[in-house]
Design a protein around this nucleic acid. Sequence first.
DNA 1: TGTCAAGTGTCAGTCGCTGACATAATCTCG
DNA 2: CGAGATTATGTCAGCGACTGACACTTGACA
Lengths: 215, 215
Amino acid sequence: MNTTSPEPVGLRERKKARLRQELINTAVRLFHERGFEGTTTEEIAAAVGVSQRTFFRYFASKEAVVLAAAEGVDQILFEALRARPADESPFLALRNAMRDHWAHLEREGLHLIGATEDLSARSPEILDTNLRYCRQRQEQLAQVVGERAGVDPATDPRPSLVAAVFFAALNNGYQNWCSEGCQNTERLLRSFLEQLDLLPQAIGDDWGTPQARSA
Amino acid sequence: MNTTSPEPVGLRERKKARLRQELINTAVRLFHERGFEGTTTEEIAAAVGVSQRTFFRYFASKEAVVLAAAEGVDQILFEALRARPADESPFLALRNAMRDHWAHLEREGLHLIGATEDLSARSPEILDTNLRYCRQRQEQLAQVVGERAGVDPATDPRPSLVAAVFFAALNNGYQNWCSEGCQNTERLLRSFLEQLDLLPQAIGDDWGTPQARSA
DNA sequence: TGTCAAGTGTCAGTCGCTGACATAATCTCG
DNA sequence: CGAGATTATGTCAGCGACTGACACTTGACA
C-alpha cells in the first residue's frame, strides 16, 4: 500500500495507483510461485494485462517492485518504532520494534502487500533482494530514528549509522537462518534478535569466552 | 593478484592466471577512463584480445571483476589487521587496521591491482560496487577476525557480525563522502573512521546532545 | 606422437531495460 | 458538450549482460 499519500483525486491518479498496486501484488505472487529469477518482467506485465514497457514506467527495475512491496512492511516497523517508549535508546527501541512488528506481521499475514502467505519463508530470494538493496529503506529508517531521537539525520550521522547497522545485523541473521535451512519465521525473528543483542558485545572490548550460536 | 595460491605450475595454469590478471587490470583501467556503466564487457574482452564469452568464463558477472580487484586490496587490510597488537579488541583493531591499511594504499598507489592512480577518487562507481557486493569480502574478513580472536566464525556469530557492521559503517562513510562531493582520499578515510568511532555511541544508551558531522 | 582434456571462439538466443514515435485515454477550459 | 492540451500506453527496434551448444585449438601426458 502506498501509505504515504492519503487519497488520489482524479480518475487518472486512481487508475495509476490501482495499476501500480496490481503490478506489485502480481509480481509478489509470481515470485512466490516461480521464484524471483524464474519470473520475467514480461510475465508480470502480461498477467496484469499491460505491456512490459508499462511495467518499466512504473518501476525502474525488477527489484524495485520488491522494494515497493517492502515499503508497506517497513511502514509497520516504523509505526512500531514510534510506539516504543521514549526513554528507550534508539537502538534498543529499534530492536524491540522489530519484535513487535514481527508479531504484527504474523497476526495480519501479508495481505497488505497482496500475499496470503508468509513472504520470507516461501521465497528467500525476495527477502534476499530486500536486504541487499536496502539503501532506500535505510534512509527512511534513519529518518524515523532521527525523528524519535529529536535529531536531524541530515546533520547528525548517528541515525543513518544506526539504520545501516540495523540492516547489516538483520542481513547477518538472515544468512544464518538460511544456512540453517530456512525454517519457520519465529526462528528467523530469533535469528534477527540474536544478532541485534550480540552487537554491543561484538564491537565491545571484552569478547570473553567463545560464543556458541543459539541452537 | 591471486594472493591465495602460491605459484601456478603448468603452462596452462600460468596462462590462465596471466589472462585473468590482464582482464582485471584492463577492466579496472577502462572503468577509470569511462566509468563502470560506460564500459561494456565486450570492450574489456576486445582490449585484452579475447572473446566476450571468455570473459564470462573467468568472471561470473561484470561486477565480479571489481570484486576480484578488491581482493588484492583486502589482503592488505587483512595483513594490517593481523599486525595489530593482540590486546586490542576485534573492532578497535579493525578500525586501526583500516587506518594503517589506508596509509599503505596511499604509499603504494594501486599498481598491485593494475591502476596507477587512486581507485576510489577516480571512479566512485567502483567503490560503490565494492561496498554493495560485500558478502564475499565480509566472509573473508570474518575469517580473519575470528582467527585473530581465536574463535571459529562457523560457530561463533560475532566475527561475521563485526565484519558486517564494519562494512555497513564504511558504506555509510562512503555515502557521506560522496554527498560532500567526493573530495580527496584522506577525507574518505576520515569519513570511514568517523563512522567507526561513532558506532559504539550510536548503538549505546546515551545519545546525549545532537551530534554534528565533522566538517 | 597420438590421444585426451581443457580453454577458446562463434553463434544464437534470453532477459532486463531504454528511446522514439504513434495512439488512446483523461483532463481543462471555453 | 467538445476541441485541444496532457498524460498514459502500446509497439518496435535496439543495447548490453549473460548463457548454452558446438566446433576448434592448444597444452598435458603416457
